[in-house]
Nucleic acid binder design. Sequence first.
DNA 1: AATGACGCCAACCGCCCTCAA
DNA 2: CTTGAGGGCGGTTGGCGTCAT
Length: 216
Amino acid sequence: MGRSPCCEKAHTNKGAWTKEEDDRLIAHIQAHGEGCWRSLPKAAGLMRCGKSCRLRWINYLRPDLKRGDFAEEEDELIIKLHALLGNRWSLIAGRLPGRTDNEIKNYWNTHIKRKLLSRGVDPLSHRLNNRPNNKSNSCNNKFPKEEVIMADFFQHQDSDVTSSSTKSAASDPDTAGEEREDINLDLCISLPCSTLPKNNLKKIRVIIEDKSRCQS
DNA sequence: AATGACGCCAACCGCCCTCAA
DNA sequence: CTTGAGGGCGGTTGGCGTCAT
C-alpha cells in the first residue's frame, strides 16, 4: 500500500549535484519559471527527482539567497523566533530574508543549540536549565510549550498590536518575569502574508483554535 | 604521515496538507 | 465525498573537511 513514489527511482541521480546539473536547472527555471516540479526534471533534461530539483533550487540556487555566516542579530532573531514558533523552520525562515529553512535548521542544530546550552538555557524549552520545571503548562499539558506561547502571542497581537509582546511570555504565569525576560518581541512579528506557506497558516489557525477551545 | 573522532551541511526520506477531478 | 497528484515541511542521514592524537 502507501503512496506511489514521487518519481522513477531507478533512473534518477542521487547525491551531490554537479555543476552541469545546476546550470541546467538554473537555465530551465530562468526560461520557464518554477512551475511544476514533477515534470521539470524531464523538461530540463535532468535525471533527478522533482523534489530534489525543488530542494536544490530553494536551498542553494535561488538568486536571492544570502550565503555566508549568520550575523549576531540573525542569531538572536532566530532564538527569539524559535522561542515563539518552535521547530517551524519555514516560518522562521520567512522572517529572515535570504535564508532558507534548511540553512536555519542546520545552523540551529550546529551552533545555536550549543550557544544556548553554554548560556545555561535549554534549547527546547528556552528555559534556564538550573531550575527544576515540574509545573505543567496550561491546557493540561496538551500542547507543547512553544505552541501555547505562540497562540497567546497571536491573541495578544489582535488586541494590542503595538505593545511589546513580552506579554506573550508574561501571559504564562509559569514564566512571567523570569526566564523569558530576554525575549524582546519588539520584533513587530507578523504573519508574512505574501510568503507564508499555506500549510503554516493552517497550523497556526489550528493551534489558536485548539487553544481557545481549551480555554472556554 | 596516518587515522580516528568530530562537526558541518547538502540532500534525502517520509509524512502531511491542499486541491482538482 | 473520495481519491490521488503534487507541493511543502521537519527530521534524519551520509559524505566530506578539519582537528586531535
